[in-house]
Design a protein around this nucleic acid. Structure first.
Ligand code: MN
Ligand code: MN
Ligand code: MN
Ligand code: MN
Lengths: 224, 224
DNA sequence: TATAAATGTTAGATAAACCTAATTCAGGAT
DNA sequence: ATCCTGAATTAGGTTTATCTAACATTTATA
């Protein structure tokens, strides 16, 4: 696996994708902190500092000592490419290889780092240029456009309303398994029956069945 | 990408696959030398020595200082798994994504290292349990069986005979491009017209057209 | 068999990505 | 204005995979 012009390591790619996730995808803020980034990636802050210096050197982020971190234009473009590959592979696994919704992320985390422009283009075509991945997240286009998410969380839904699940915020296996167990999935219709003021737990109805969920759980279900 | 029990690094996997290639696939001998292995992998002999000590430690090869190297049963099993993934991915790229015959190897070299048993099984099924890859090489089965090759090289074919191309020995881009250029491919019928005793160059006919090829080239075309 | 050539190993460095422990800095609270 | 605290950085290590240069062993050849 020889090096192309300015080819990035798996690790560098993961840092860029993490920054995209923190700054754009989740919070709609545009800067991240060292500890926040390190926490997200499961490394120590000292490790992140080293990498931040390297990414700045390569002009992929803007960052000053003790300051906030944000992606440069090149860095963001690169991060969006990786996100595009991640979501295309998730779609492939789900649509073509009979993977379940909660299994795709782990494998896509590896596949997203395969280097071949032709592979991405052909995969996209093979899948029929999909717009959304199996979690309901928008797939960035070949030209690098990433639709903003208009999603809100189930914990924000008003009592007495009905909504439709479109994605999840948490991608851990534990969470996704619990989701399946409750027979929740993409496009499941949810009736919001009531919310407990004490701890934010909610009673909801899915497929005609009433269940109670915690606030923590509701905060990780995205709806339209 | 957390570590599974006894998970191997990309590098360790590449060493095992190289040993399989040298000892079984190409020469049908059962032992390799340090320089030979290092040469094949494009590293220095000193580097290979270090890795050999590690692979012995992990009981993946049998090897004594200054002695010959061969795969242990575990090592061979692991190497065959990687070769299986390599050839399944090549088949996928060729059959489903419209890659050409000479483009698949490079990308499969990356894809072969993806860790997911389910992915391999489902990919195999998706492709209809193929027996041969786009280069005509046998794909190891799920249970680890690898059909021996009965191929001989075009340079060994007798004058006046007709044969069929089934595979190539060389997988470099330069070689494969030249093959395409000559309009040679899997299953092309070749008439062996004559061989020059001086340098082993041969005159052959393909698709009714006469061409002359070098001995070096003929040694890398496999036929039945 | 003695020597030369080829093959293989060791020693000592480097770069990437990580760690722990110690230190520095910036912003909020007295 | 000073202090405290949490955030961030630095210093000093480790591990993996690589290298070069020097050394050791085996094999081939004269
Ligand atoms: Mn995902
Ligand atoms: Mn990743
Ligand atoms: Mn190949
Ligand atoms: Mn490989």
């Amino acid at each position: 696996m020889r090096n192309f012009i300015a080819m990035l390591s798996f690790t560098e790619e993961n840092y860029l994708k993490a920054l995209l996730h923190i700054t754009i995808e989740v919070e709609h803020k545009n800067a991240a902190g060292t500890n926040e980034l390190a926490g997200y990636l499961g490394v120590k802050p000292a490790t992140a500092t080293d990498m931040l210096r390297k990414l700045k050197e390569k002009q992929l982020i803007s960052y000053e000592k003790y300051g906030k971190i944000s992606l440069s234009d090149t860095g963001r473009k690169k991060a969006i490419e990786i996100l595009r590959k991640h979501r295309l592979w998730e779609t492939f696994l789900y649509e073509k290889l009979e993977f379940t919704w909660d299994e795709v992320h782990e494998v896509a985390e590896q596949l997203e780092h395969i280097q071949s422009q032709k592979l991405v283009d052909k995969l996209d075509k093979f899948l029929g240029f999909p717009e959304y991945d199996p979690h309901g997240d928008a797939i960035p286009t070949a030209s690098g456009e990433l639709k903003p998410s208009y999603k809100k969380t189930l914990s924000e839904a008003a009592e007495g309303t009905t909504c439709r699940m479109v994605a999840v915020k948490d991608n851990t296996v534990a969470f996704l398994k619990y989701v399946s167990q409750l027979e929740l999935g993409i496009n499941t219709h949810i009736d919001v029956l009531s919310r407990q003021p004490y701890d934010g737990s909610m009673e909801i109805a899915i497929n005609g069945k009433n269940i109670t969920i915690s606030q923590k759980f509701a905060e990780n279900i995205l709806i339209v």
